[in-house]
Nucleic acid binder design. Structure first.
Lengths: 219, 219
DNA sequence: CAAGAATGCGAGCGGGCGCTCGTGTTTGTC
DNA sequence: GACAAACACGAGCGCCCGCTCGCATTCTTG
């Protein structure tokens, strides 16, 4: 059943065989899109500007994406996937047993690093202006992260009611995004200072709910 | 030697005499703008839509505002002024002497109430996409609030270095905006829950810096 | 090689945007 | 009432947007 040739995800009827050149173009276009979205926001970013930044013509852009929205969706999905692939391990359950301060370090440091390297991610997460359909994909992306946080909270404090857990996860994520905005808005020592402030804030918020100690598991 | 006629490039000259009807129209237009900005964000909001929502023609809108940007600026200024007039008292120094929990209640409750009644304010505060000039006015609005917070923090803990104070004020304000977004995104009991979560978060963040007690002098 | 698919181009389309302008109506002042 | 200023209208201008299309070029395959 499995094709011995290149993996063929037989989804809908889409007999489009991409060449290596095409994949490269897609990556160029997404990189350019990240840059332009970051600079102007989703609505103000123009597809012509994205194509220009990628060094291709508008027509070429539309060879690979059906419309502007699809660019943002694909960019968001790729960034999300890459973040989980690279740093998804921080959400594993063993981390839940760490003392709270170490848990926050373990989760935040990779996330902050990733977002500093990919500032477009936060831009997409915060883009409130958007055509309706993008908002749905956007919400899905949002929830996929929120679920990870809620899961971690649930393991850490199983006694929490589902509502409280949702509220806590939502608020923690919102606080994180807020701090991330400050962090990305500064550089060098200032940035480090805001990283420390954000950790302090999250510690202060989560300590009463999750406890400061780690799980009784001993090495 | 006053000018008899002929308005020249005199900056301070304001030869426009508004009638009561005009002031009413301006208010209608700003109300409509608040609604549209809130629904679509600054960039996606169209001046034609604002005029339509206000029940006037596009030409009438431009009788009172030179361009779209001026609408947002004026709206922001009016909201900011109104907030300070109505609730500015919460930043007075006597409040700084309250126990931290009461201080947070005293500051946050009126702010939350105001922002629930005027959700456009947060929209403007968060509007990242915008033409350059608007961003300057926007930053001024931002700073005017931030200064108030920094002042309060400074009175509460005079020993704080100016840098720390700035960082703390910035972070506290960012956390507040983040929580406010969640609050405005929910209603009824959910909203109340997020209000409580936000207060918890701010308390947890500020307690180590400002102390939980009311007495300002503390070894 | 030939042939077809994938890729690439860029002028230009339809449309909605911010905004204008000629004209008509209401209001304040004498 | 006479007159000017303020107010109101709405068709429409110029611009730029997202996006298309016809055609040229490059790759893959046999």
């Amino acid at each position: 059943m499995s094709e011995s040739k290149a993996g063929q995800p037989d989804e809908t009827a889409k007999p489009r065989r991409r060449q290596a050149r095409g994949e490269r173009r897609i990556q160029q276009l997404l990189d350019a899109a990240a840059s332009v979205f970051c600079r102007a926001g989703y609505t103000s970013a123009s597809t012509n500007a994205i194509a220009r930044e990628a060094g291709v013509s508008p027509g070429t852009l539309y060879q690979f994406f059906p419309n502007k929205e699809a660019i943002a969706v694909e960019l968001g999905e790729r960034l999300n996937r890459r973040m989980l692939e690279t740093h998804g391990v921080v959400f594993t359950l063993e981390n839940a047993a760490l003392p709270l301060r170490e848990l926050i370090d373990a989760v935040l440091d990779p996330m902050i690093e990733f977002n500093c390297a990919n500032p477009a991610f936060l831009t997409l997460l915060q883009s409130s202006d958007a055509p309706g359909h993008f908002l749905e994909e956007h919400a899905a992306l949002h929830d996929s992260i929120q679920d990870r946080i809620g899961e971690l909270i649930g393991v850490r404090n199983p006694g929490l009611s589902p509502e409280r857990r949702t509220h806590t996860a939502n608020m923690a994520f919102a606080l994180f995004k807020a701090g991330l905005g400050l962090i990305l808005g500064h550089e060098g020592a200032e940035r480090e200072a805001y990283v420390a402030e954000l950790k302090t804030a999250l510690y202060g918020y989560l300590a009463p709910v999750l406890g400061t100690e780690g799980a009784p598991a001993r090495p």
